[in-house]
Nucleic acid binder design. Structure first.
Lengths: 197, 197
DNA sequence: GTGCGAAGATGAACTAGTTCATCAAATGCG
DNA sequence: CGCATTTGATGAACTAGTTCATCTTCGCAC
């Protein structure tokens, strides 16, 4: 069942968690089904939940003044997603987070998370680890955006997430990689000798 | 003295800290003077310290295959700096972190930080907050890099860090903003009616 | 002081990536 | 099924930003 997958995931994050703690932790989350194209975060509203994806796919994106959307993060099974800025500072979100497929998630609301962290040192540790990894992830992404050409970012993506590529529409990947969808299409077809479909 | 400033900073981060805790925490750090141009992190070596800047300025940067450097982060008084990826995953750093001025810092080594976090729930909370804010910072920076033009990023920087601009050489700011130093120079002189010196 | 390296300004030529427009194929859905 | 919407390919014209090269200015070392 979903809860087993989720507890295994949490156990991998922090092996010290006891069975009781895993049970308490997961009980604090709500299992929820989300339909394709449904939004779980929208600009103007505070992102009140942290989401763990059991099954499905999401993307978080912003729309710039010119109306172009930019994917900040995506998430498939076993990943987490929310608008961090909005969630931690309790300010209105700048992002959209939308389901790309019919999905199943565990969600945790802000107040419950605070309670968990206060009552158990190890829960605090779990969220600290989570935040550190998120910081490292965003920093790696920033480095990639600043130091690599469009084609290099595409190759890097293919190497890192080979399965994700088939699964998401190309315009989502283009907007994640910081290039126009037309250019991604050109890279894929002409670009270099490599032409994995 | 430096330690007062540092304790005030920590108190602002987490007001619940008692005087005893502040004392214990700051005692775990080492006060250190660092000369201009000295490196505190270098590629190939694990970043073993987290640095709080008491006085001075630093920048963290990577060098791409073409030899161009890209500033990932800078830090002046009351900011923190290290190579997060290297520090938390204990892998060789990809970055340089260098002093831009003669500086004074408090540094905390990895093992001591682990001990602090284990022994006191509130210290764990402090580092959790720190990591969350770092994640949010890097995410905002990524959004800016993806959604704004060079000129907009420059204006944003001016608005956000007006004092920093005078203090750092222009090529550092250009590499932080993700543009060539020549282009930053052109923006500053021709760009728009605004021409703050 | 003067000589020299580092920082900034400026222009001309160039290019990586965008925009716009059209066409083709795939997918969903009533 | 069959139509409509979404997704992807491709080419031509364009532009934001780069690269390279030259010149000036400024700080500071001896």
């Amino acid at each position: 069942m979903e809860i087993v997958q989720f507890q295994q995931h949490l156990s991998r994050q922090l092996p010290e968690l006891t069975a009781d703690e895993l049970a308490e932790l997961t009980a604090a989350f709500t299992l929820r089904n989300i339909k394709k194209r449904q939004f779980i975060v929208q600009p103007g509203f505070v992102a009140d939940h942290r989401i763990y994806v059991v099954q499905g796919a999401f993307r978080a994106y912003v729309i710039d003044p010119a109306g172009i959307d930019h994917t900040i993060q995506f998430a498939i099974e076993d990943w987490w997603i929310t608008d961090v800025n909005s969630f931690i500072y309790r300010t209105p979100a700048q992002m959209f987070v939308v389901a790309l497929e019919d999905s199943t998630v565990f969600q945790l609301d802000y107040a419950t998370e605070q309670r968990l962290k206060q009552t158990n040192h190890r829960f605090e540790t779990l969220f600290r680890l989570h935040a550190e990894r998120a910081a490292a992830y965003h920093q790696r992404r920033l480095i990639s955006a600043l130091t690599r050409t469009a084609e290099e970012r595409y190759e890097e993506f293919l190497a890192k997430y080979p399965t994700v590529f088939q699964r998401l529409p190309q315009y989502v990947i283009a907007s994640y990689l910081g290039m126009s969808k037309e250019f991604l299409s050109k890279i894929r077809n002409h670009g270099g000798p490599k032409k994995l479909n």
